[in-house]
């Protein structure tokens, strides 16, 4: 009798489990990385009642060895083959590079990608079984604001950490600058000292865009702020909100938009739409912030229309 009860209970569980859809979420990075955590959190928030979500991490920020990343990608692909999820969500570049493109391209499993920078084609997109949202930076939007703030822009400096991702971003930025007849002078730095020297060296540009600082050795936040205050006289901006302590203005993407879009697409596909019918689009929500402390050291005045739509940074 007990055995039968156990079987019945287990069957009930399996049936219940089988009735709900399974979502296989691949996070390119690791738990604790704010950007990818927020995308995942938004997706989870919207979909946890719709499907059973399993989360898998590639840890691409910490692990830079391509071979190891490939192996990890293969492990995850095997898991997908075994568990046969109803949909796979690939968040950020590494997930598409090490799992979707090599193992799922044009397969039966629907794939939604989010967070591939600028151009998804290097990762095999478009695919018959995939759609998603490309991650674009609001460079043009930032440039528009800069122009409204400082007037004519002919030269712009880009100071950023030296890594492949930033190099690729720099290409995209350069394209936009070219289109706007703006000369882009890029500084790729590996140490805090290099970063400080680049600040000083870039003062001949009309405007300075600070890229990411992640990966810069000996980074000292307070010293950086002090350095900026002391040695910078140019309008500075960034496209990442965590750079706001060091810049006067930032306009950044919203990770929640990617999480939400992934959830929207998942729901649409669950309703019956085929991924290839849904065009790949870029992210369109950008959030403006400004640093009044740094601005107060200068004569720059961001237009009121922008200020009204921006968030004030108050930490420093």
């Amino acid at each position: 009798m007990k055995l039968w009860l156990s079987v019945l209970t287990l069957s009930g569980c399996l049936i219940t489990s089988a009735q709900a859809a399974n979502c296989f979420y691949i996070n390119s990075y690791h738990q604790g990385y704010e950007w990818s955590d927020r995308i995942q959190a938004q997706f989870s928030k919207e979909m946890k009642t719709v499907c059973n979500i399993s989360y898998h991490y590639l840890n691409a920020k910490k692990e830079t060895n391509p071979n190891k990343l490939k192996n990890k990608g293969m492990e995850i692909a095997n898991l997908i083959a075994l568990s046969q999820p109803d949909i796979v969500i690939a968040a950020d570049d590494a997930a598409s590079e090490y799992v979707v493109n090599p193992y799922l391209r044009n397969g039966q499993t629907p794939v939604i990608y989010v967070g591939i920078n600028w151009d998804p084609r290097p990762f095999g997109y478009p695919m018959s079984n995939a759609t998603g949202m490309t991650e674009v930076w609001p460079i043009q939007q930032a440039l528009d604001t800069v122009k409204k703030t400082i007037g004519v822009v002919t030269k712009m400096a880009l100071i950023t950490a030296d890594n492949p991702l930033e190099n690729r971003d720099e290409q995209a930025i350069r394209k936009i600058m070219d289109k706007n007849d703006v000369q882009l002078n890029s500084y790729f730095v590996r140490t805090f000292e290099e970063w400080k020297q680049s600040i000083k060296a870039a003062q001949y540009n009309d405007v300075i865009k600070l890229g990411t600082i992640q990966g810069i050795k000996d980074w000292d936040k307070e010293a950086a702020i002090a350095w900026i205050k002391e040695h910078n006289q140019r309008f500075t901006f960034a496209n990442q909100d965590f750079m706001l302590p060091f810049v006067m203005y930032s306009i950044s993407k919203s990770p929640e938009e990617f999480g939400h879009w992934a959830a929207e697409l998942t729901r649409t596909i669950f309703k019956g739409d085929q991924p290839w019918q849904i065009p790949i689009i870029p992210n369109r929500i950008f959030i403006s912030r400004y640093n009044p402390l740094l601005l107060s050291k200068t004569d720059f005045k961001i237009p009121d229309a922008v200020i009204r739509q921006s968030i004030v940074y108050k930490d420093n």
């Binding site: 997109y125 478009p126 674009v136 065009p279 790949i280």
Partner: peptide, 8 residues
């Protein structure tokens, strides 16, 4: 296409 609309 340059603005992210793949194959527009």
């Amino acid at each position: 296409q340059d603005n992210g609309y793949l194959d527009f």
